[in-house]
């Protein structure tokens, strides 16, 4: 396989993680809005969503950090 193709496939797999993080975020925002509408416990909803959203974003961030620094430093001694 060509270097370029490999790189694009890698980018694609990496973007899955961002898609996951973004969809988790939208999902939680949606759920918090719903919990507001049906008058559920607000605090529980907020705590959990803040916790979950942070975790997924950090994970995606760490993965991207590794990916880009590996590629950046691939040709150094």
């Amino acid at each position: 396989m060509k270097e370029k193709t490999v790189y694009y496939i890698q980018l694609l797999t990496l973007s899955f993680n961002w898609i996951l993080a973004i969809s988790v975020t939208t999902w939680f925002v949606n759920l918090v809005v719903i919990s507001n509408q049906v008058k559920d416990q607000q605090t529980a909803s907020l705590y959990i969503s803040v916790f979950a959203i942070t975790v997924f974003w950090i994970l995606a961030g760490v993965l991207s950090y590794v990916f880009f620094s590996l590629h950046k430093h691939a040709h150094e001694a």
Binding site: V6, I9, Q10, I58, V66, S69, L70, H73, A74, E76
Partner: peptide
């Protein structure tokens, strides 16, 4: 080839990996 993410074992690459592992294990 795809999964190796262009890893060649340069010191800087090693350092980046180590840093990521450290963050992850604490998380």
């Amino acid at each position: 080839k795809i999964l190796a993410w262009g890893y060649k074992g340069t010191p800087k690459q090693k350092h980046a990996l180590e840093k990521a592992i450290n963050i992850l294990m604490v998380m």
